[in-house]
C-alpha cells in the first residue's frame, strides 16, 4: 500500500470567540492517497472546510487553534512547520480552489499577474518562465485568447471563467494535491458540468490528487473515489463512493440521501426530511452529534460518542447501531440497487 499524501489523524480544531469556544472539528481522521479524488461532504458548519484548510494552515490563528491530533503531509506534521515553510508549501505542494471566485480573486490585479504570483520569491523561476507557465496553465484550463485575458481584471470575466482562473492558480505551481472547497457551488448547472469535467480531465492528465469539499451529493457521485461524510465536527461515515451510496451505514447519510429530490422521485412521494437542526458547536453534545435528529437513537447515543466500526473494504461508520448488542436496523438508501426505477 502506498503512503498517503495527506494523513489527518484525530484532528481537533477550535476557535476562541467572545461567546466561548467553538469546537469546529472534533477528532477527525482522513487520508488521501496519490492520484485519488476524495470527497468530504456535509452541511454548513459541519467542519469540512476548517479541517481541509488546516492542511495549509489557512485558518486565522488566533482565534483558531489546534486542540489535538496531527495533520501529516507527505509524512511531515504541518502544524510543526514555520510560517515561512508553510508559504513555500502553498501553491507548490498543495493548491487550493476556493468556493467563491468573485471574492477570492484580487479585483485590483490582472488575471495573468495573479496566476504568476505563485512564483514570486521562488528561486529558479525567472519572470519570463513564470509568464510562460501561467499562460500555459490558463490555456490548459480552457481559457481562450490567453494573451488578452491575462491583461484583464476579474470583473471582466464571467463566474465560470473566474473559477477556471482559480483552478489555474491552484495548479500552476505543480502541486501534488488540490483541495477544492465547494468549487462549483456558485455556478450554474451547465457551467458546473464544464468545471467538473475540467477537474476530472486535469486529474487524469496531471495525476494530481484532489480533495473535493461539497454539500452536493451529486458532485460527490460524479467525481469521487472515496467519501467522508461529516456532521457536527466529526466524520460519521467513510468509504468508497459505492458503499456510501448503495450500502449506507449511518442514519445521517441515509437521511441526507433521502432528503434530496432526484429526477426519479415521483411528485406523490414525500421527501424524507431530517427534522431538527444541526448541533450547536459551542456546546457540542457528548454523544453522537446526530443523536437528537436520529430516528434510531438509543440511550447510549446521547451519552457516548460511537466508535468507528469497520465494515470491510475501507467502509466505516461511527454509529452505535453497529454494536453487537444493538437491534439490527436496515437503513435503506434511496439509490440502492432495486429501488431505482
Amino acid at each position: 500500500m502506498p503512503e498517503p499524501i495527506l494523513d489527518v489523524q484525530d484532528l481537533s480544531y477550535s476557535f476562541k470567540t467572545y461567546g466561548g469556544e467553538v469546537e469546529a472539528v472534533r477528532g477527525v481522521s482522513f487520508n488521501v492517497f496519490p492520484g485519488e479524488v476524495v470527497g468530504i461532504v456535509g452541511e454548513s458548519g459541519c467542519g469540512k472546510s476548517v479541517s481541509a484548510q488546516c492542511a495549509l494552515r489557512l485558518n486565522p490563528e488566533p482565534p483558531g487553534f489546534r486542540k489535538g491530533g496531527r495533520l501529516l503531509y507527505k509524512g511531515e506534521d504541518v502544524f510543526g512547520k514555520t510560517e515561512r515553510e508553510m508559504r513555500d508549501m502553498r501553491g507548490t505542494e498543495i493548491g487550493f480552489v476556493f468556493q467563491d471566485p468573485m471574492t477570492y480573486l484580487n479585483p485590483t490585479m490582472k488575471i495573468g499577474a495573479q496566476v504568476e504570483e505563485v512564483f514570486v520569491g521562488r528561486p529558479g523561476v525567472s519572470r519570463k518562465d513564470a509568464k510562460r507557465r501561467s499562460a500555459e496553465m490558463l490555456r490548459l484550463v480552457g481559457i481562450s485568447d490567453v494573451e488578452r485575458r491575462s491583461n484583464q481584471y476579474p470583473h471582466e470575466l464571467s463566474g465560470g471563467m473566474k473559477q477556471r482562473v482559480m483552478i489555474a492558480m491552484a495548479l500552476v505551481g505543480g502541486p501534488s494535491l488540490i483541495i477544492a472547497d465547494e468549487p462549483t457551488t456558485s455556478l450554474d448547472v451547465t457551467i458546473e458540468a464544464q468545471i467538473l469535467e475540467l477537474l476530472d480531465g486535469l486529474r487524469k492528465k496531471l495525476g494530481t490528487s484532489i480533495v473535493i469539499i461539497t454539500h452536493d451529493l451529486g458532485v460527490i457521485a460524479k467525481m469521487c473515489d472515496r467519501v467522508y461524510v461529516m456532521y457536527g465536527g466529526k466524520v460519521v461515515e467513510s468509504g468508497p463512493v459505492e458503499d456510501i451510496f448503495y450500502r449506507t451505514a449511518h442514519p445521517y447519510t441515509a437521511g441526507l440521501l433521502g432528503s434530496i429530490a432526484r429526477l426519479e422521485t415521483e411528485c406523490a412521494d414525500e421527501l424524507k426530511a431530517i427534522e431538527g437542526t444541526p448541533p450547536d458547536l459551542f456546546s457540542p453534545p457528548p454523544g453522537c452529534p446526530f443523536a437528537a435528529r436520529c430516528d434510531y437513537a438509543m440511550r447510549v447515543c446521547y451519552e457516548r460518542p460511537a466508535p468507528g466500526y469497520d465494515l470491510g473494504g475501507g467502509h466505516a461508520s461511527s454509529c452505535w447501531l453497529r454494536h453487537e448488542y444493538a437491534a439490527p436496523v436496515e437503513l435503506r438508501s434511496p439509490c440502492a440497487p432495486g429501488t431505482v426505477a
Binding site: 448547472v189 451547465t190 458546473e192 458540468a193 467538473l196 452536493d216 451529493l217 451529486g218 458532485v219 460527490i220 457521485a221 460524479k222 463512493v241 459505492e242 451510496f245 440521501l257 434530496i260 432526484r262 429526477l263 439509490c335 431505482v340
Partner: peptide, 8 residues
C-alpha cells in the same frame, strides 16, 4: 444531462 445526479 448537466444535473449532477446523486447516484454514482
Amino acid at each position: 444531462s448537466a444535473i449532477p445526479e446523486a447516484d454514482p
